[in-house]
Amino acid sequence: MIGASGANAVLSLRDASVRFGQGKTVGPFSGDFFAGDFVVVTGESGSGKTTFLRLCAGLLTAAGGSVDRSAGLVTGYVFQEPRLLPWCRVSENVMLPMLAAGVDAAEARARTEGLLDEAGLKDSAAQWPLTLSGGMAQRVNLIRALGIGPKLLLLDEPFSSLDAAGRSKMLDLVARHGRDAGMTVICVTHYPEELSGFTTRSMALGADGAAI
């Protein structure tokens, strides 16, 4: 689909649904997402918000309909729980996705230092993840996603465990990087009002699928 600016959609979902085991089907979801979009996704618990994000990320395969991702779409995902490797230090956790993406080790190290500095975690680079507070771990989760220079950033209720200051820090980081890189941001949240200054569109998930 062509957007208002004439750009092609980075990600398109057409009646995409997911089947879990033999029984429950979640979806169908539909929507087009363009470069620079900041879409906030809301919905009641169990409406399939995380399933929708995992479908967008390519972590789930659509059982029905289609999901079209632009070729080579680099995707960052801020998981609801940080999912840091507990046996790797904070800096390694941030660096590993970059190394996996083929970034040169020296470049990855420099980028990691910059991101840790921006996130106020410079002094925590050598810490083990289990020693971090919830807010710090969530910021590492975010900069790990930002480190690979994603064109699509998916955030799954990233602020639910944070206090106001922590939420503000994370939002600033997302907004700064998103704006600079023309990133498409899709954020699932229960508190859309906190993102009102940043969002370009909102999407509410009902029990029977998505509506923009």
């Binding site: 972590l59 995902y77 998981f79 999912r83 590993l96 996705p97 190394l99 996996a100 993406a101 690979i148």
Partner: peptide, 21 residues
């Protein structure tokens, strides 16, 4: 499984997955 999903998302190679996860 959640760490494996993270490794899948960030396209960890088989060797990185074995060594790091």
């Amino acid at each position: 499984d959640r760490l494996l999903e993270m490794a899948t998302l960030y396209r960890f190679s088989l060797s990185m997955r074995v060594r790091r996860v």
